[in-house]
Amino acid sequence: MRITVSTAVSCAREAIQDFRLHEYLPFGFILATQFLFLILALNLGAPWGMGTVGFLARNIGGDAISHYPTFFLFLPNLAAWIEAFLYTVAGSFLIPLAIARILEPSDAALQAPGAVLARVKRSILPVLVGGILTVGALAGWQYLLPKGPGPLIRSLAGGGFLGETLYWLLGVLIAYAISVCFLCVPIVAVQDGRGFAHSLLGGIKRSLAVFPFSCGFVVLFSLPAIIALYVTQVFGRQLVSQMRPEVMAVLLFAYVVFISIGTYFLYAATTRLLISGRQEEA
């Protein structure tokens, strides 16, 4: 696949300029669910908040984390698990749906009545498996990070604020790089509409082929989300102890909005990139 930097830039620009609400709506559904989760998390003082998110938190972290303000120290982790669940499970249907809507104007086969839904249904399994593989790889990285590379970079930086920042940056950048390796699985699954193995393996192969460009897209579109994440994860304890603990939830609101829009742009740009690649090949 021959893709140039200028093609990638055009794809990114086009993705932003051609924003269409109905293409974004599947991501909007995930965002709405995350909003609901955060609203419930902000209301643990009410039985309906404690009976839902509080119940979930107590079952994951025990009674100690369902106290105020300790709960807000745990909230970013809980929100991360919810995010992983939503983007993996609900996303196995919603992400292909959004991609099919992005592809629809350029793919005549998708314009037939019921074709979008049929293609999306066929994509669910490979996308779900791709998502689970991503989550598994990310969990592996999260396990490895504090064992060796994290402390190493922290000590090389001389500890302190710089050490913490570099530790966090290493964790996030590698995590994004891992996600990028599976980024094209839903696009290939929807675009080609072929079997499970083709979608999964072909998706990984194409992801690796466009890896440098997708990484650029990730950095570009996730930058606002990365900043919000940096504040919550690096300054979490200070925010909770020295400011209002609820600030943590406000930052997470900002993060989920940025990540939702960023993910849509990421898929929109990468889909356009793969279409351009194919056209170039043809």
Binding site: G45, A46, P47, G49, G51, G54, S66, H67
Partner: peptide, 13 residues
């Protein structure tokens, strides 16, 4: 225990 857990949370808040 949702009601009492919520009450405890409110008290701590």
């Amino acid at each position: 225990d949702a009601v009492r857990l919520a009450a405890r949370y409110r008290a701590e808040q």
